[in-house]
């Protein structure tokens, strides 16, 4: 099976001459469907750039990006837009929802942009909201929702339809830890259904929800966690106690 997301020695350089900034250096990353990968690193480590390149919002300077086996570099702007609304879902730290559209309209928007009739799209949107426990909030506008609810609606929008890739940039950065945990639970749940998730964060508590944590420093992948042991290991009295 091909990976839902694959980055092959991706580099990104901003600016040129004396103002040149190397945001990513030869990054390799592969995320299987159903896996949630966290990218951790201090600010300026290039983790947000990694996310925007993976989501076809920006071009890599060198290297190859594959989403669902399709190479991004040969695609036209319109093809990329189509790929985004069909296969890629984003959750940002804040400002995810379009003001003026209700929660369910926000969720249905990617489908409608893809040519699905409004009625069908909104039914699908409502279903996605129900799965995230937001069935009562469907007709509310973003400014009538709490921060946690907004992020949950954003996740619903990111997974509605047949999405392959869920990209999140500090999805719970603006939330308290309880709401943040709820958001991460939903991200994991979405991944269990077969979506490949990438969450970018500097918060170890959020990163610990992932199956794998990749550490980024100065645009380079420096390390990653081993596949986790079973949780039972914690219950053995550790030698230090």
């Amino acid at each position: 099976m091909t990976a839902a997301l694959e980055l092959r020695s991706v580099s990104k350089v901003y600016g040129d001459g004396p103002t040149e900034v190397q945001a990513l250096r030869e990054v390799n990353l592969s995320v299987e469907a159903g896996a949630l990968v966290a990218v951790m690193g201090p600010s300026g480590s290039g983790k947000s750039t990694l996310l925007t390149i993976a989501g076809s919002l920006e071009d890599a300077t060198t290297g190859e990006v594959l989403v669902g086996g399709l190479t991004l570099s040969g695609m036209s702007r319109n093809d990329r837009a189509r790929l985004r609304r069909r296969a890629i879902g984003y959750v940002f730290q804040d400002f995810n929802l379009l003001a003026g559209l209700t929660a369910v309209e926000n969720v249905a928007l990617p489908l409608e942009l893809d040519g699905v009739a409004a009625r069908t799209a909104q039914a699908a949107g409502m279903e996605a909201l129900e799965q995230l426990g937001l069935s009562d909030q469907g007709s509310r506008f973003p400014d009538q929702l709490s921060g946690g609810e907004r992020q949950r609606v954003a996740i619903a929008r990111a997974v509605v339809g047949d999405r392959r890739l869920l990209l999140a940039d500090e999805p719970s950065g603006a939330l308290d830890s309880v709401n943040g945990e709820a958001v991460m639970r939903l991200m994991r749940a979405a991944c269990r259904r077969g979506v490949a998730g990438v969450v970018v964060t500097h918060d170890a508590q959020l990163a610990s929800w992932a199956d794998r944590v990749v550490f980024l420093r100065d645009g380079r992948v420096v390390d990653q966690t081993a596949p986790p042991l079973g949780p039972e290991s914690l219950l053995e009295p550790s030698p230090s106690q």
């Binding site: 610990s208 944590v213 079973g230």
Partner: peptide
């Protein structure tokens, strides 16, 4: 850091 994060992953899994 890696060790600690792995530890946190286990707790989170729990």
């Amino acid at each position: 850091r890696r060790y600690l994060v792995e530890l946190m992953q286990q707790w989170t899994r729990l």
